[in-house]
Structure formats: C-alpha cells, structure tokens
Design a protein around this nucleic acid. Structure first.
Lengths: 202, 202
DNA sequence: AACGTTTTGACAGTAGCTGACACTGATGAC
DNA sequence: GTCATCAGTGTCAGCTACTGTCAAAACGTT
C-alpha cells in the first residue's frame, strides 16, 4: 500500500516536471500570454483537463521552480540558530539563490524565468502574490522563533524587516537577470543588504 | 472643441466613479470572486461591454482608489527637496495614507478595501503588481533626482530602499486594517520606519 | 434640422478554468 | 485466472473574464 502510494507520487512528480519543462520551452519561444494551455497540453500529449489536474493554473506551471524554492527558503530559515539576528538569517536563507546562481545551467534557467516574469503583467502579479505568501510563512517562523527565545516581537516591524530583505534580494537578482555576464551575486547581495540593513540590527 | 473634450472627460470620470462605487458595494456584500462583471454592469445599468470600456479588468474597478493614490505618491515625491534623504522623502510621501487615515469615513473605506484585497488571491496579486509598478515609477523619479544632484546612485540599492519603505508601509497599514480601533497611523509608521531605517541613512 | 463625433449595445468568439461522468489500466483479493 | 477497486485520463458541457466588430443611438456643432 505504502509502496503503491509512493510509486504514484513518483509518477506524479515526473509528469508534473515534464509538463513544467515543455511549458517553459513554449513560454520561452512564444511568450507567456501567447501560449495557450491547449498548446502546452498538446505538446505534452495530454488533454487540457489533465494539465489542470497537475497545475491549478497556467501561472503555476510557469512558477513551479519558485514554489520549490519557497519550501527551500523555509527549511533554511528554521535551520538557522535562534539567536542570530533575523537580518543575517535571511541573508543566509538567500544563499539558496546565490548557490543556484553559481551553476551555469541553473543560472541561465533562472535568468530566463525572471525575464519571462517581467514580460507578462499577469505572470508578474502571480509571482508577487506567491512571494507575499512566502513572506508570511517566514514571518510565522520568525515569530515562533522569537516566542521560543522568550522575546515579544513586534509583528509589524518583523514583517517590514522581511519585506526589506526581500526587496534587497529582488533588486539584486533583477539586476543580475538583466546583466549579460556572470556577476558575483553573493557579493552584490552582501553589499545591498549591508546598505539597507535596518537600524535595529546596527 | 476643447470644451467638448473637457465635458466628455468630466462625464467619463463621473461614470467611472459611479461604477467604482457600485462595484465596491457589491464586492463588500458578496466578495470579489463571487461578484461577476455582469452583475456589476446590471447594477449600474449598462452592458458588460461598456463596463470594460471604463475599466480594463474587474481588478481595476476594485483598485481604482489605489490607482489615484499612486499618482498622488508620485506628485508628493517630486515635491520634496532634492537633498532630503530618500528614506525621509518616502516617509513624507506616505503621509498621503496617514492623512486619509485621519478622516473617519475615508479610513473605513480604506480598511474595507484592504480586507477585500486580503480575501482574494487574484485581487491581492493584481494589487501587488500595481504596487510594484508604482515602486518602479518612484525609482525613476529618485534616479532622476540623484542625477540632478550630480550623484551616481546605485540603482539596486535604491530599488531595495524603496521596497523596504513600502514594506514598512504595508506592514503598518495591514495591522491598522485588522485593528478594530483607530490607531495613530503616523506614529506607528514613524516607529516602524525608524526601526527599519537602512544603515546608509543612519 | 443636418452633420460628424463619440458612446453604447448586441453579438460572436477566445481562453482559462471547473464539475460530472464514463472509460481504462493497474492492483490486490479470492 | 477472474473479479472488484481505484487512481488517472479524456470528453463534454458550462461559467466567466475579456475582446473585436458593427450598427444604432446620443450628443454637441453648425
């Protein structure tokens, strides 16, 4: 029984990944808005209905990588020491992006995704909404951590701090996505996050 | 000729405002997703097609207030002295929100809008996308200002600073929207923006 | 009253997305 | 080996947001 379920999960993930790849290729070729779900489904060899059994929306197919990255972020944050200043913890969380940027193939893929997102308002909107959700999850994690420490955290300030950190990440990655050549993303991020480091962590 | 055009503009704005009011009422009653454009058009007494001649999307009708606020933000920023630290200029720009919050009627309206936005993922996504656009416009203004001052601004850092300031605003307003009673939004915002104030302005 | 411009409604069509139902193919029980 | 089961899939029908087109209506100008 457990085996069967596991096999199904494996299969499901494989199909999902395949759809994601095909979709990414079509999006890159024709653009996000100009690609229909029917075309993706056809290219994969399935019905439109089945596509929607794997992805809740066309946007979800395009943002699948970011969904996985979100989970990674959360894991990395909870792995950080509880007494580390939140700002520095967040910087370490962002190493997920820096590390991915180090690999040539993954970097190209990430840059492509970022340019795609910037090219379509609806996709950008979906991306920002997911980023917002991620920030809320991180906020809960940091609130729980503060409670563990016996501190009384100001939720609004903490929310703003997370938002500020993400603004640093976005600004840095955005520039790296436009830049033709490989930049030292880690160093750039360090510089930006040092310049923006909130007074409360000074 | 000029008069006629002006009259048309007045009429157009009035109709647009009327649609916005009716839509806001329906959204408040039934929720954003549960309200169809047909229902709004019916309630106003026009065809669906005409609705879309005034608003490009259902989201736009719900976010009309924020569109006007965006223009206000930009005006206020350009009115600030060129040598003022960006962080402080942004705080003054946000006075637009603080002032609106001071008036009881406008505050209720703004709180309603915020709760509506949080209640619908699609509407939240549209809101965040518009906020992002606004930040880009403010970035351009601040870049132009820096150029005027003869400074060489780091675009990524400036982008991050604007994002950080908006994170403060959002966190503060979000809490105020949930809070039952009237809070001193200006004081709260001052506190959050002081705690998060970037190192470069220390 | 006649004219030209603008606005509007009606209609048809596309695309994203969902519910319902029937079919298929693999799995486990007997 | 047969049968019941059940997840995965395709088909179909339908809803809603949104767009192009075109003819009719509304409106200010002359």
């Amino acid at each position: 029984m457990a085996d069967a379920n596991e096999l199904r999960e494996v299969s499901r993930r494989a199909v999902r990944a395949r759809i994601g790849e095909v979709a990414a290729r079509l999006f890159a070729e024709r653009g996000f808005d100009a690609t229909t779900v029917d075309e993706i489904a056809d290219a994969v060899g399935m019905s439109q209905r089945t596509f929607f059994r794997y992805f809740a929306s066309k946007e979800d197919a395009a943002l699948d990588d970011f969904a996985r990255e979100s989970d990674d972020f959360l894991h990395r944050l909870t792995a950080r020491p509880a007494d580390e200043p939140e700002w520095d913890s967040l910087r370490r969380v962002f190493d997920a992006v820096v590390e991915r940027h180090a690999d040539g193939e993954l970097r190209r893929r990430s840059q492509l995704a970022h340019r795609l997102i910037k090219s379509s308002p609806t996709l950008l909107a979906a991306y920002l909404e997911r980023a917002d959700r991620l920030q809320q999850r991180l906020l809960e994690a940091l609130l729980a951590r503060a409670a563990e420490n016996g501190e009384e955290a100001d939720e609004a300030v903490l929310r703003a701090v997370i938002g500020a950190a993400f603004a640093c990440l976005q600004a840095t990655v955005s520039r790296a996505a436009s830049a033709p050549e490989a930049t030292d993303l880690g160093a750039r991020l360090d510089a930006v996050m040092a310049a923006v480091r909130p007074a409360r962590y000074a």
